[in-house]
Design a protein around this nucleic acid. Structure first.
Lengths: 208, 208, 208, 208
DNA sequence: CTATAATCGAGACGGTACGTCACGTCTTGAT
DNA sequence: ATCAAGACGTGACGTACCGTCTCGATTATAG
C-alpha cells in the first residue's frame, strides 16, 4: 500500500523521513479544500514544503498519490464491541454514517469507486478495503452467532453490503441534496437501519 | 437535463439531427474506456465525428456533457409491480444488481459520486437521481402500505438507501475482487437482501 | 528559414498574422537582456503576449526559435558602394565592427557558431549566412576588378574571411576585456584593417 | 584556471589523482557530442565514473568546468620561429587553420564566444586567451620589427585579429558548408591570407 | 593503533524550465 | 445559424537538470 521499497542498499542520501507523511497530509488537505479538479501536484508539493521531484520519487502520478493519501487516512474505523448484536450494529452504522460524512471518508469512498473502474492497480487497494471494512462486520457477526443472537445461515457479506450500502447512500443523498444532518438525525438513521435488518438476521423473531 | 434549448427560431442551418446522440454515445464510451482523468472533449468530438464547436454549442462544459451522457443512458430502470411487497422488492433488487453490474449503470454510479463531490451544479443531477430512483421505491412502499403489508412508521428513504446501498456495494465488491457473479448468484443475493430487510418493515412478524 | 508551411488548406482558424514577428522580437529582446541561460520560453511567450502553445506551434523548441529570431533580425547589413575599393572596404569594415558590437549582430554570431557545431539543421542557416554576408564582399570585389583596382587572381572568399574575421575577433576581444570602443577608435580600427589588406589585393603596389 | 587549490593541508584522504583529467576529458567529450544545451553535469560525472560531489569539489559550477576543460586542451598552440616574418605568419596561419579545424580548437572557439556573451567570470578566460594567443603574434611581430621587416606603426592587435579572424571564419565556413579541406587547400589558404596582409605591414613595398 | 578528517560513490533534496496536452474560446470558409 | 477544422491563452502535467545536502565507505595523517 505505502510505497513499495525501491532499490535500497544504504547508498546515497536516505529519503527524508517525515516527507512521506507531510506529502500525504498536504494531499488530503488540498483535496479537501479544492476538490478533484482543483487538486494540483504543485500545490501539494508547495504545501508540504517539498520539491515536485520529491513527490514524484515516491508516487508515479497524481492518481497514485491521491489513492495512497486516501488509503492512509481514509480507512480508519474504530473497532466496535458493545456486547450485543443490536448494539454493535447500531454503533457500526453510526460510525459509518459519520465516516462517510467526513471529508476523509467520503474521499476514500470516491477513490474506491475510481479505483474499481480501472483495470490496473486493483490488488492493493481492494485488499486494504476488504481487510479494514470487511473484517469489521465479520467479527461482529461471529460474536453474535457465538452468543446465539444471530442465525448461522445468513451470508455475512450480505450483512456487510447492506449496512455499508445504507450508510454510503445516505451520505450520498446528503451531499446530492446539499443537506447536513444533525447528530440526532444521524443517530435516528442508524437506529432505523439496524431496526430494518435486525429482524431479518436475528434468531428471535419480533425483536426491535 | 436534456440540451437546454438554445436559440431555435427556424432561421439558419438546423442542427444536425443525429449529432446529439452520437456525441452522448461517444462520451459514455470514452468515459467507460479511460475513466474520468482520461476523458477528453477532443477525443469525444473526434470519436463522434464532429467538431468541438458542435459539442460546445450543446453542452456548456465537460461536466455537463458527462452528466448528461450518463443521465441519458444510465438512469433507465424499468418499473416494478408484482402485486406483493416481497415480490416487488426482490425484483427491484435484481434490477439494481444487474443495473450496477452493467457498464452504463456503473458509469452512472461513478458519475454520481464525482458529481456529489463538487460544490457546483448539484441541482440538476440530484433532482434526476431522486426523481428516477427515489420515486421507484416510494411507489412500491405506498402500494404495500395500502395493502397493509408494510408498517406506516418506516421512513421510506431508509428503505431506499438500504436496498440501493446493498446492490451498489455488491457491485463494487464484484469489481474490486475482479469477480463476475452468475445469474443464479445474483438472484440468490437479491433474495438474501430482501429477506434481511423484509421482516424489519413488514407488518407481519416472522414473514420470510 | 521561417516556419516551413505545414498543412494549410484554408480550414480552421488561421494563425494570427502578427504573432510570428511579435514572438521573434520578444525572443531577441529576452536574449539580449538575460543571455542564453536566462532565456526562457515562458518569458518569451509572456512578453509577446501569446501562449506557449502558440510558440510551440511554430517552432519545435528553444534552439529553433532562437536561431530563427537571430536569423530574422541579425543578418541585416546595409549594402555598400562608395565608388572605390578602399572606400567600400572601409565602409564594410565599419559596418561589420558596429554590427558585431551590437546585441543582434553578436547574437547572430554566437548562434552561427552554435549552429555550425551541430550536424542537423545546417542547411538553411548556412545558406542565409552565405547569401547575406558572402554576397556583399563578392559584389564589392567584382566592381573593383571591373574598375581595374583589384587583381583578378585573389580568391574572394579569402578577402571575405579576412575582413569578417578581423571585425569578429575585434568584437570578441572587446567583450572579453569588457571594453567599449569609442566611435573614433572603431573608425581607426576599420582603417587599419583595410590598410593592412589593401596592398595585398590592390593592383597598384604602394597604395595606403 | 587550474583547480583553485582548496584546503590542502595533508590531513584526510587525498584527492584521487586521475580524477581531474578524467573529468576534463569527459566534459570535453560531452560538449563535443551534445553541444552546450545537451551538456549536463550528471552525464559528465557518469562518463568520468565519479560522483557529482567529486566534480563540484573541484569546480564551482558548470561554466567553470567547461571553461577549464576547454582551456586545458584547447589553447595549445606550438610556438613559431622560422626566421622571417612571412615564414612565421604563414606557419602561424597554418597552425591556426588546423587548430580551429580540430575538435578541441573548435570547442575552445565556441566556448570563447559563449563565455564572452555572459557578464560574469570574464576575467580568467579572457586572460588565458590573451596570454596564449595574443602573446604569440606579439613575439612574431616584435622579432620582425627588430629585423626591420615590419613597420613600427602597425597596431599589433590588428594583425592578431586579422590572422586569427581569417582562420576562424575559414573554419566556420568549412563547417557551415559541411566541407573538409585537404592539406593542400589548407596550405594554399594560409599562403593567401599572409599574402594579403604582408604587403600592408611590411616595410618593403611590393614584397610577396 | 586509534582518532580525526577530507574525499569518494551514490543519490535524495528544493527549485526551475522544459515540451506536451487539455480546457473552453475564437475565427475561418463551407453548408 | 450551424458545421468541421484548428489556432488561441491558460495552466497543470510529468521529466530533466541544477547545485546542495546527506549518507556510509574509503584513505590518508596526527597523536
Amino acid at each position: 500500500m505505502t510505497t513499495g521499497e525501491g532499490p535500497r542498499r544504504g547508498r546515497g542520501r536516505p529519503r527524508t523521513p517525515g516527507a512521506e507523511e507531510r506529502i500525504l497530509d498536504a494531499a488530503l488537505a488540498e483535496y479537501g479544500e479544492h476538490g478533484w479538479s482543483g487538486f494540483t501536484m504543485d500545490a501539494v508539493a508547495r504545501r508540504a514544503g517539498v520539491g515536485k521531484s520529491t513527490v514524484y520519487l515516491r508516487w508515479s502520478d497524481k492518481d497514485a498519490l491521491l489513492t495512497d493519501a486516501v488509503a492512509s487516512h481514509g480507512l480508519e474505523l474504530t473497532a466496535v464491541d458493545t456486547g450485543s448484536l443490536a448494539g454493535d450494529l447500531t454503533q457500526l452504522a453510526l460510525n459509518l454514517l459519520r465516516h462517510f460524512h467526513g471529508a476523509a471518508g467520503w474521499a476514500a469512498l470516491r477513490i474506491t469507486f475510481d479505483t474499481a473502474s480501472v483495470d490496473d492497480r486493483l490488488g492493493d487497494f481492494a485488499e486494504a478495503v476488504n481487510e479494514v471494512h470487511g473484517r469489521q462486520v465479520e467479527q461482529i457477526c461471529l460474536r453474535a452467532i457465538e452468543r446465539g443472537e444471530m442465525a448461522e445461515d445468513i451470508p455475512i457479506t450480505a450483512v456487510t453490503e447492506t449496512i455499508y450500502g445504507a450508510a454510503m447512500v445516505h451520505a450520498l443523498s446528503e451531499r446530492l441534496e446539499a443537506r447536513a444532518d444533525s447528530d440526532v438525525e444521524v443517530e435516528a438513521r442508524a437506529r432505523h437501519i439496524v431496526a430494518m435488518i435486525l429482524p431479518g438476521i436475528s434468531t428471535m423473531p419480533g425483536t426491535t
